[in-house]
Amino acid sequence: MGQPKTVGVQDMQVRTARAQDAAGIARLCVDNGRDPWPAEAILSTADKLVVVAVAGAQLVGIAKTHWHEDAHGIAPAGHYLGGVIVDSSWRRYGIGQALTSARLAWIAARSQRAYYFTNKRNDSSLRLHAKFGFVQIAASEEIRTVRADDGDSKLVLFEAIL
C-alpha cells in the first residue's frame, strides 16, 4: 500500500475508533504480522481509549490504552499505553507520536501517571516514549502475562508523570 500522491500527512487526523473502522484495523494488523483485534477491542469505554489515524479515506495507524485496576507483579495498577501500529508506508511522519499524544491527553484527564512496557530492544518505542518523559521503573522477563517477542529479551516497564 503506497502513500497516495493526493493525500499527505498534513491531511492526517487522529480520532476515536468507530465500529466501521473494524475492516481497516484488521487490515492494518494483518499487514503488520499481527492478529486482528477482536471487534470489542476497537471500541472505547470509560476505562479504555482506542484511536485511529486517518489520512483521506485510509486508516494509517491505530493505538489503544488499557486500564489495570490491580497491581500485577512489578506492574502497578493504572492506565497503560497499549500497542501502536502504523502502516509501513506512513512511518516516520509523526503518526505514532500523534497517536501517543492523543492517548496521553486522555489519560491525563483521568490520572497523574501513565505506564507502558516494551521489549528492551524496541528502539523505536524507546525513542518515541522518551519524548513524552517516560522513565524506566522496572524490567522483567514477563509483565502482566506478556513475554518479550524474541523470547530471550527482557521487557522494560516505564512510567510518565502527567
Results as ranks from 00 to 15, higher is better:
T16K: 14
G33Y: 11
A17L: 03
V7S: 04
A105W: 00
L126W: 04
F132W: 11
L99F: 02
L162F: 15
I42P: 04
F132S: 07
G94L: 06
D21C: 06
S140P: 05
A53R: 01
A39K: 13
L104K: 03
I137H: 04
G96Q: 03
A138G: 12
R92V: 06
N32Q: 10
A22K: 14
S101Q: 14
N32E: 15
S153H: 07
P76M: 03
V51E: 03
P76V: 03
T6Y: 09
A98R: 15
A39Y: 06
V135M: 13
H129K: 09
Q20W: 04
V146I: 11
V52I: 10
I107D: 01
I85R: 01
D87Y: 02
R144H: 05
V14M: 13
I107M: 09
D149F: 14
R144G: 10
G24D: 09
H66F: 15
G24C: 08
S140Q: 07
G61Y: 06
A98I: 01
H68Q: 13
I137K: 05
A41G: 03
A148Y: 03
G8D: 06
G2S: 14
A71V: 04
G96N: 02
V9D: 10
K154E: 15
L128A: 06
V86C: 08
G2N: 12
L49P: 00
C29V: 01
W37L: 12
P4W: 06
Y116R: 00
Y80F: 13
R27A: 14
G94Q: 09
Y115G: 03
G8Q: 08
K120M: 14
W37M: 11
Y115E: 03
P38L: 06
G96K: 04
S124M: 05
R15N: 12
T6N: 12
I74N: 04
A108R: 13
L155D: 00
V9L: 06
F134P: 02
R15G: 08
R121M: 08
A75T: 02
V14C: 06
N32A: 15
F134L: 03
G78Q: 02
R92A: 13
D149G: 10
L104R: 03
Y93M: 12
R27Y: 12
R121L: 13
R92I: 00
Q3A: 07
R18Q: 15
A98K: 15
A23D: 15
A63M: 04
A148T: 02
I95L: 11
K5I: 05
A19K: 06
K48G: 02
I95P: 00
R113A: 12
W106A: 10
Q58M: 11
R92Y: 14
K48S: 09
W67E: 02
D21P: 09
D87C: 03
